[in-house]
Design a protein around this nucleic acid. Sequence first.
DNA 1: CTGTTAGCGCTTTCAT
DNA 2: ATGAAAGCGCTAACAG
Lengths: 339, 339
Amino acid sequence: MATIKEVAERAGVAPSTVSYVLSGSRKISPDTQRAVRTAIAELGYTPRASARTLRSARSDVLVLAVPRVPGKYRAVDGRFAIDISDAARGHGYDLLMMTDPEGVGGLRRVAGSGLADAAVLMAVQERDPRIDALRALRFPTALLGHSDDPDLPRVDLDWKAAVTLAVRETVSAGHHRIVFLASADHEIRARRGYALSGLAGARQAAADSGADLRIHPSSGDPGRLRELLHRLLRTEPAPTALIVQHLVLLPLVREVATAHGLLGSGPPAVVLVGSLPDDPGCLRLPRIELPVEQMSTAVVRLAVEAIGATPRTAGAAEPVHQLIPPRLASGPQVPRPAP
Amino acid sequence: MATIKEVAERAGVAPSTVSYVLSGSRKISPDTQRAVRTAIAELGYTPRASARTLRSARSDVLVLAVPRVPGKYRAVDGRFAIDISDAARGHGYDLLMMTDPEGVGGLRRVAGSGLADAAVLMAVQERDPRIDALRALRFPTALLGHSDDPDLPRVDLDWKAAVTLAVRETVSAGHHRIVFLASADHEIRARRGYALSGLAGARQAAADSGADLRIHPSSGDPGRLRELLHRLLRTEPAPTALIVQHLVLLPLVREVATAHGLLGSGPPAVVLVGSLPDDPGCLRLPRIELPVEQMSTAVVRLAVEAIGATPRTAGAAEPVHQLIPPRLASGPQVPRPAP
DNA sequence: CTGTTAGCGCTTTCAT
DNA sequence: ATGAAAGCGCTAACAG
């Protein structure tokens, strides 16, 4: 409601002085400071974001492109949205959601209109059209998740190391016959980064440890997955531990694992890779969590840095590719196999 | 990059004409239209949001206040954020997240700065300070969830009817001894709307149906809840069905229910109230889902209507309190009790 | 049917 | 240490 002019009048100074008090970019006498601050408080003045943005060409807003598949819902998306919003506030930015039901148009509009200063792209696919659109606009961008694109800064969990770590922990607990339930077959066919890296990690861990690691893609279809799991766990000699990267159907996995004695009254011989922090469904299982908060902080930092870098230093330094090292969640340990 | 002036020059018209072509608020000849649209396309022109907002005092942005409890995470919040973003786009609005780690300051700043035109408040508490702040600014607001406040439009699931429906369905399937696991005791003590309404629904359903409905608050503590559930399900004569409103620890509930034979190879005698749509953890259970999409659409509509209503019709008509009627999710039915 | 023009509220030179 | 004033890009009232 109140404008900078009204504040200035009430404080008996020029509008520019009020502006300088607010921005701190000029030395102002203590007396004037006090007068201005009093007037601001009395009028409940808040600067108009639009005027400030129009003038300064900075909106202090980031836009988050959330992937959206109608009918499907991935809990991880909402979780990142919230954590990234927190991280953005920590850098002085607000976060605008772009759920993009209209394809790439929404993002282009927000970027082109100056509504946001930079974009964070989630769950990037190979040859993502959103990347092309933002690049065409020379819009500062940071990626969350795997991507082929070598030019943009990005952050991801080191999925290969994560699976390797899970296998290593399971082997050191004494397990020799282990099933690794990898990402779903459709994710592998789509060449998703986490899916391929997970597989690579499993293969390497198998070679390194010499354990009998039975690697198998999961399935997005509950019926198929149930059948598959029964088959894998029934195989003789029976596996004593199960490592799961495909967590979407975790309840089903639990059910089958329970039937085969891997879960029950004793400590669970099921290890999760990439679970959501604080997910009550995972609390009692040994696991490597998706470091959502850490990844959010990191990707926001990259996006903000890209704002300063883009105009002048057009791709000067090499882009940052930040792989977060996995950590075993504190709490439940991988149990030794039954004797 | 390009401005309206450049478009105008290229099309050989005045800037205002370009503006009118864009807004459609004036009749423009087909020839001029074409020339302008061509110029827009060639230049890749996107109007500056800040200039438009400064001029028109409308930002076409809604702000969503997401409640945030450090260390806790409720999957439902992220889900609503995404669905509300979709709904907002459907009304021509973008959605700004406000995760409010700084308390109520962020919301006040966004409202006061004109960054957003209206607010949607999630998970409103009794005597919510955010409501006071927004009311002081006369900022258009709509609420999602229960609230004491009678003055603001709001949307919620009709939790009382939901629990009543769950009980009715369970009774008509032939169950006579039923346990209702209500919200957690701390939620009831905090007088959360969904908790109290759920209890009320259960009491009324018990009275109406004459069934042996054992109503009990849940617990947020896993250890306590496990013990409680064992006790409730062990009581003789043994209950044949379990209705659950407290879903946070559902995996634990499943575990105990399985041990008592309510879940297993046969159809599940566990009924959920307020589960998230598409949650793989709930797919096989009979349930009344939280109608997230419907609620999101409704609350966005109320927020948008509040924008038009506030300036002139200051609280003219009575505020809308929209209770969404519950529906049994298609799919699994409540099974008859074992003979 | 189209053009001219006056600001919206702020930041930032330039001037003192 | 402070003021004065230009102008960011757009919309809408006014003027043909």
